[in-house]
Every structure is written in C-alpha cells, then in structure tokens.
Amino acid sequence: MFNLSAHHKEFFAAIGEITYLTRAAIRELFKGPFEWKLINHQIVLGGIDSWSITILAAGFTGMVLSLQFAIGLEPFGASMYTPKVVCLGIVRELGPVLTALLVGGRVGSGYTAEIGSMNVTEQVDAIKALGADPVRKLVMPRVLAMTIALPLLTIVADIVGCFGGGIITMVEVGVTGRFVWEQTIETLEIVDLLHGLSKSVFFGYLIGIIGCWNGLKTYGGTEGVGIATTRTVVYLSIAILVSDFALTRIFLAIYG
C-alpha cells in the first residue's frame, strides 16, 4: 500500500494550509471595504523600501555577467553579442529570480518575524477577540502588496542590470553606447519582458503567503520566532527556485 512518511505528510499539510490561507486572503480582498491604508503601507514597507537592495544586486549581476561573456566569447570572435546575451539573461531569468530571492529574504522573513512575534504575544488572538480577522488585517495586505511590488521592482532590476551590463560591455569590448542600446532594443521583445514579469508576480505571491503562513504557525516564544524566520528563508528560496523551473517551462510553451 501507498505509505507516506512524516516528512511527506508535513509537506502535503503545508500545501493544504497555504492553499487554505490563499483562499481566505482572496475572499477578504473582495469583501468590502477595501483596506487601502493597510495595503499601501505594506507596498511602501516591503516594496519601495527594497529598491536599494534591488538596484545593488541587479547592477552588479549585469556587470559581472557582461565581464564573463565579453571575455568568454572572445575566443569565438563573438564578444559583440555580449549585450544581446546579457539583456536576455537579465530580463528573462536573473532579474526576476535574483530580485525575488533577495527581496524574499528581506521581506518574507520580516513578515514571519512580525506576525510570529504577534502570535506568541497573543496579538493575533487579540485581533480576533476585538472583532477583526487576522487574514484581513495581516495576510491579505502583505500578499497583495508583494504581488504588486515585486514585478515593479523586477522592472527596476531589468533596467539597472542591462545598464550595468552595457557599461561593462563598452569598457571591455570597446563598443559605443549606441551599439549596446541598438543591440538591446533589437534583441528584447515584449514576450521576454512578459516572461520575466509573469514569474515575478508569482514569486511576489510566494513571498507574501509563505512569510505570513510561517508567522501564523509560530509558537514557542522568541526561540520559535527565530526558528520560523529561518524556515521562511529556506522555504522561500526552495519555492522560488523550483517554481522558476516549472514556470519557465510553462511560459516557454505559452510565449515561446
């Protein structure tokens, strides 16, 4: 007979709980009145405040990628293709994934620490006792905020990454800025942007929901908060990397 180990049961229970929490969050989103203030606050905290880490990561990734390709393609006489390869790599893959991993580590773990602390100090129970719903007040605004903010941050990452890559290409390959610009425009199609942004919408949802879910499951005082926060970073990284592969396969079939 089919026999599940404890780890498998835990995994499927987690999937079930996250699905249930997602459903509850969607229901609260469409139940009036719309929580503008809370959502806006979370977009600022989780999204806008993450711009510096996004720019730093994307800029240096673009630069190092250019450096590697400019030198690596030289023996084949293909250094001129560096802007094409770099911009495609950034927009389709590295922009969304790196931004999600970094913002996920910053924001997702923050959600778990905040909600987890509220949980162990009975503040989540207090929300219910005072007549409100923790999913509405805590989960829905965070999940929605990250689903909106991460694609916007990814666009910033794409622009900065391509720009950083372009500068290094100019220096290393000795081409003009105009050449880099024309190569980039010629290579990138709207489909490439859609490919990356569609993934970042899903990654944003993952950051919000996994961060909140782990926070609501936290128990065992401050030690429990620490454990839950670490768990969020691990779960998020795995979820982003695995779903990236699956989503890439799906979007290749859809967009080509």
Binding site: T121, E122, Q123, D125
Partner: peptide, 10 residues
C-alpha cells in the same frame, strides 16, 4: 478579553 500580556499592538 484582557490577555495575559495585555496583547497591545506594538
């Protein structure tokens, strides 16, 4: 309900 640690929102 008054919670044990007061459960005020920080």
């Amino acid at each position: 309900m008054l919670f044990q640690g007061a459960a005020l929102f920080d």
